[in-house]
Design a protein around this nucleic acid. Sequence first.
DNA 1: ATTGACATATTGTCGGACAATGCGTCAATA
DNA 2: TATTGACGCATTGTCCGACAATATGTCAAT
Lengths: 247, 247
Amino acid sequence: MSRPSSFSKLDHHPAYRVVSEKIRSAITSGELVAGDLLPTETELAEQFGVTRSTLREAIRLLEHGGLIGRADRKRLVVTLPQTEQIGRSVSSAMLMHKVTFRELWEVAMGLEPLAARLACANASSDEKSQLRSLWQRTCSAAEGGADHHQLLLECELEFHHRVAQATHNHALLQARAPLNDLFYPAWGAVIRALSPGARIVVAHRHVLEAIEHNQPEQAGLWMEKHMQDFRRGVELAELGFEQPVSG
Amino acid sequence: MSRPSSFSKLDHHPAYRVVSEKIRSAITSGELVAGDLLPTETELAEQFGVTRSTLREAIRLLEHGGLIGRADRKRLVVTLPQTEQIGRSVSSAMLMHKVTFRELWEVAMGLEPLAARLACANASSDEKSQLRSLWQRTCSAAEGGADHHQLLLECELEFHHRVAQATHNHALLQARAPLNDLFYPAWGAVIRALSPGARIVVAHRHVLEAIEHNQPEQAGLWMEKHMQDFRRGVELAELGFEQPVSG
DNA sequence: ATTGACATATTGTCGGACAATGCGTCAATA
DNA sequence: TATTGACGCATTGTCCGACAATATGTCAAT
């Protein structure tokens, strides 16, 4: 065993993984683009020289990544991975790694103000008006008290998501997608404990107006304050800043 | 059709997806933890009341997400999703969305200086010394000229990865994991075009020393300069800052 | 203690089968 | 003419049974 073996451990990949990899590379190499229809399962199975069962396992492997899906419940189609779909698997990974409130907050402090700044330059007027109408909904949710906690939570999360969307930066969208999933339970706990509707509304308004008037610095600063509020909220609610975010 | 139908579109999920979801929820809910061994396929199939083929498709669905794997080529085992595995699917998603150099750079400007700052407080002495020895390897790679471009590229990427690891922030690691994959071709092109070894070495040294001396501001500033260098590199190499990063 | 032979269990792969369902065609009808 | 209904066809989702390859355990032989 201690003898320096010059043989590399030969790795025998199962067929379903090989097939999956072939299809994946065909997609990522641009040979197949989103929207392209794939042949039927039987036909694909023939092309690869495997049985339909094996091919289907390969399909499942890609399906989870959002690379392919069903067009009309029949034909397979190459699809663009959706940020939310990918983000969910990332966030579940974060949950399993027991990411703490602090870790989540630190990353959010890096990404959310950045998103706010970038949104100033890139938000379309349509996105701006949608943000404003969302803010008005947030107002009414904040007034409702405990009855509207769930609604307020959803407004809070949607606000950040829409700001990120307004950047039109897909890398940013993908990077912060999992944060939204983690903030769901996190903000939820804070809201239930403190009813911080008023503070949320104020912060959102300043960010919104900064975006409307194309003031990146202001947008970033107020988003930062908003995240500081979140941190204070976690501490005041005595959730334990160093505790893992519970799914 | 225009009549307001009060019926919700009933969604019939195929069995393999239901089974997959059952297992996933058992894992994310903590009922099953990483390291747990699952029964054999036949046994699982019996428990869920499906055939082995169907069950295997469900398994594939989870396998891609890194939630389960094979222990010893036989028994199934619950595994902690690895950042790199997840990151790769995210980065391939970014590639398909034609993320530009600018978008990549903007996110990196948010995350990399943050990582440098956080690494100051959290890096173990072991990680610090590993960073230093990596820097020395970078030096020799930088001297080699065109022959060592590949080596230099790998050093550059590994440096950023290790800095991120030194933060001990798993959320940050997951969020920036896909960036590494995208920086591979991006830095590669810059290095081949400009041979910026010297500048890389200088920037890394400053970041490294700032981390060693626990100076977060310095670490963040130099990491920022480093990313500015990357941007200049893309422009000087005439790669097109607004062009998509090619996989 | 190492080696070899053998039975056992489990996975990877195969081939075939069938029900459910969506789609196209085409005739019948108002 | 436009809608409806009947019918056949294609494809997926699911099932069943089978077998080779391989890892594991046991036991005897050296």
